[in-house]
Design a protein around this nucleic acid. Structure first.
Length: 590
RNA sequence: GGGGUGUUAGCUCAGUUUGGUUAGAGUACCUGCCUGUCACGCAGGGGGUCGCGAGUUCGAGUCUCGUACACCCCGCCA
């Protein structure tokens, strides 16, 4: 009886007169007494089925017994609805099925929340009854668009000779980067696998193996605290290419993202994307993932306040701090209360406060304006090109805090004032990342991207000359792709010369023994004719979240975890039987 | 590890400011009526450990403390 089944959403007025069989869930039951309308839902859509008791009393009685989410099978004839009964709100609203038979395939408990409305439900309930929320339109749209996006991406890459290759999930733990999830080995007592943070080493190995274009849509795992755009397991579109330049990788990704966006949400975007250097991005926006949907550029003005009478500024500068400002033409929208809130808010970024004043027709008002000299005011007008009435915000502290504070305030102010065009999709590349950064607490250099990233070829000679002071000058061949202020991917040209790789490890304070212990297979592989290669990984969940304008990565993942890393549906993680622990030689210490 | 918001009927939420009779609404659910509805309609009905635990008080959904869970953020993480 299932063989002839058709999908509700596939039926149209062209099918009028046909005998069909549909199966699905009772979305709604409208019993008018002598006539009953059932709305039947399947994965594609909804179809109205009519039961007329004067035609078949038996069928009407069965239909009458159905409740929300009962599973039924209906046979009947498609017919065009009378003009005055057409429902313009659903795609199949101009037809209906005149039922000849109905079978109740399964019954359902009363669902804890309605499936057929767009009302938002509490996320805790959504996660617990994920199997029901997945029936609802909002989540279903995300899951199906996710599928379409993956298919579009696969096709695009396959068409360009990329080969899809799987890499191991049970891996060797590497303490670099994020915290690993580890898996105990039963056969090897006291030893552990790690789940991959990314397939980095394996995809480089594949390049050495000669599969010159690899890709994989792959789960990655990081045991770090969660955020609205971070889950412990997430999906990357991962790729690697041999015989390539940065530009070639970027071109592939631009084409890939253009293709994806043409499917979800179905827009045309311009390629190539804008490019900005890491240095310029930090200078203008305070972050390496700038949101360029609105202006509000940060203006450096340390020099203006170097010898200021306003000691808050001059003292901080003396101690090596910097000052950056932001001029907002607020059209009177920024209230006293908002300013108070902002001043309070910046403390979470480590800032002491948010000095400000208003500018209007040559006058400086409020805030710190009374501490400023005429010279300083003149310079400020010039530097910020002040013309329209504006509110100016400043941050003074060490460079990191100033940038972090101003980057976040820039976004917050833009959001509060409605300056962000939500329909924009601003893709851009951030290039020329520093190769290293200096960890002043651990007193050592760290790879900004990862330790296999190639320095710029014309700067390799300065590798040994890098100091904590000039660390920013040595650039790598690393690049990030950013969408609407969110980092959606990053990659680099890799080191293919084992000697250069060793020099990098040396600089990072990774001893030969340590390098051999952790990465010997890669180092060994590089000695057997490694082609020049590079690649990138895109965060699929994040991209989809932005393209579908969802608030959280959880809204585009079928079975996400809570902030404490729990699955409210399955109850993972959970304890295990003593026998399992014993087999693994593991003891829980209270 | 830290800061913030929330938790009241199956669901979505009001009530908490200023403690005071029997805690409300919409929806869902159950029963009955109804032959063109489409969030069908009409009539009736059932449904509450106000997250949990202490405390203050004559009296706590409301105040205090603790705690659990969810979410947002800092740290952490590309």
């Amino acid at each position: 009886m299932f063989e002839e089944r058709v999908y509700c959403g596939d039926l149209s007025i062209d099918d009028a007169g046909k005998e069909v069989t549909i199966s699905g869930w009772v979305d709604r039951n409208r019993d008018l007494g002598g006539i009953i309308f059932l709305e039947v839902r399947d994965v594609t859509g909804i179809m109205q089925v009519v039961f007329d008791s004067s035609k078949s009393k038996e069928n009407a009685e069965i239909a009458d017994k159905t409740r929300s989410e009962y599973v039924i099978l209906v046979k009947g004839k498609i017919r065009k609805r009378a003009e005055d009964t057409i429902n313009p709100n659903i795609p199949t609203g101009d037809i209906e099925i005149d039922a000849d038979s109905i079978v109740i395939l399964n019954r359902s408990k009363v669902p804890p929340f309605p499936i057929d409305t767009r009302d938002t439900i509490n996320e805790e309930i959504s996660l617990k009854y994920r199997f029901l929320d997945l029936r609802r339109e909002t989540l279903k749209e995300a899951i199906i668009k996710r599928h379409l996006m993956m298919q579009a991406g696969r096709k695009y890459l396959v068409d360009r000779r990329f080969i899809e290759i799987e890499t191991p999930v049970l891996n060797k733990s590497t303490p670099e980067g994020a915290r690993d999830f580890i898996v105990p080995s039963r056969i090897n007592r006291g030893q552990f696998y790690a789940l991959p943070q990314s397939p980095q080493l394996f995809k480089q190995i594949l390049m050495v193996s000669g599969y010159d274009r690899y890709f994989q849509i792959v789960k990655c795992f990081r045991d770090e605290d969660l955020r609205n755009d971070r889950q412990p397991e997430f999906t990357q579109i991962d790729l690697e290419m041999s015989f390539c330049t940065e530009d070639m990788v970027m071109a592939v990704i631009e084409g890939l993202l253009k293709e994806i966006v043409s499917v979800v949400p179905g827009k045309n975007i311009t390629v190539p994307f804008e490019r900005i250097t890491y240095h310029e991005s930090l200078s203008k926006y305070g972050t390496d993932a700038p949101d360029t949907r609105f202006d509000l550029e940060l203006i450096e003005c340390t020099d203006i306040f170097k010898r200021s009478e306003f000691k808050v500024f001059s003292t901080a500068i003396e101690k090596g701090g910097i000052v950056k400002g932001l001029a907002v033409q607020d059209k009177g929208k920024i209230s006293r209360k908002m300013i108070d809130d902002y001043t309070d808010h910046v403390r979470i970024y480590g800032a002491g406060g948010l000095p400000m004043f208003r500018y209007k027709e040559g006058n400086f008002e409020g805030g710190i304006s009374k501490f400023l000299s005429d010279d300083e005011k003149r310079e400020i007008v010039k530097r910020f090109k002040l013309n329209e009435p504006s509110v100016l915000f400043f941050s003074v502290d060490n460079e990191n805090i100033v940038n972090f504070t101003m980057a976040n305030m820039r976004k917050k102010i833009a959001a509060d004032l409605g300056l962000i065009d939500e329909d924009k999709l601003n893709f851009l590349w951030v290039t020329d990342f520093p190769l290293f950064e200096y960890d002043s607490e651990a007193k050592r250099f760290q790879a900004k991207h990862h330790p296999f990233t190639s320095p710029r070829t014309d700067q390799i000679d300065m590798l040994e000359e890098v100091t904590p002071e000039n660390v920013g000058e040595l650039k790598s061949q690393a690049y990030d792709v950013v969408l609407n202020g969110v980092e959606i991917g990053g990659g680099s040209i890799r080191i293919s010369d084992p000697l250069v790789q060793n020099r990098i490890f040396n600089k990072l304070g990774i001893s030969d023994e340590e390098a051999n212990d952790k990465f010997s297979f890669l180092l060994e592989a590089l000695k057997y004719g490694a082609p020049p290669h590079g690649g990138i990984a895109l965060g699929l969940d994040r991209i989809l979240m932005i393209l579908l304008k969802r608030n959280s990565i959880r809204d585009v993942i079928p079975f996400p975890k809570t902030q404490k890393g729990q699955c409210l549906m399955s109850g993972a993680p959970s304890g295990v039987a003593d026998i399992q622990l014993k087999e693994l030689s593991i003891k829980i210490v209270e």
